[in-house]
Amino acid sequence: MALLNEQLQGQLKEVFGSMKNEITLAVFTKEGDCYSCEETISFMKEIEALSDKISLETYDLEKDSERAGDYNVVMAPSIVILDSDKKYRGVKFNGIPAGHEINSFIPGILEVSGVGEALPEELLAQINALSKPVNIKVFVTLSCPHCAGAVQKAHKLALESDLIDAEMVEAQTFDELSNKFNVSSVPKIVINDQYEFVGNQPLEVFLEEIAKTQ
């Protein structure tokens, strides 16, 4: 049975109609104990079928460890969105982006395909001034209405800089990692595993915390 009902498929087809360039969904799963790996693959197959501009590649976290290393993938399931040159742009989802996270996943596809508004110039200047790598983890739950907004912002920043790697982390799927960072309110944003804040804050707050890593 399809995960996406007909109505949702229709809506997504329409949204994907505004994609500019092609994108690739690179999905990493692993054998054995893997919560939601199967559903994630099914979900991605259904998404692929909704647009000619979307193609799907599936990998195994262990067997394709080199590929996983290219995109800093260390968890499964994990979805990486690659641009039309199959380049990793720092847009990653750990755990199935269902529930409210479909509202960060679909914009993620659109943004990597080249649509979306540019960031204000003052923010771009700050991003261009970065010199060291930045990792942004956004911990979410699938029932959190404003978490997707925080994930979108992190991804938007990643798209503007090769130094920024931004990943959604579904807190229930990856409870060990969530416990490690004491996640008990979402969205919780952790930068370079060191600096953190809670809430869908303005981009300026993301950049303030990022500045601390430089």
Binding site: S18, G116, P145
Partner: peptide
């Protein structure tokens, strides 16, 4: 499994862009 798609995505990205 639920998907809570925001119906206004089309107004943000799509043909109905405001």
């Amino acid at each position: 499994m639920d998907f809570n798609l925001n119906m206004n995505l089309n107004e943000q990205y799509g043909k109905n862009k405001k």
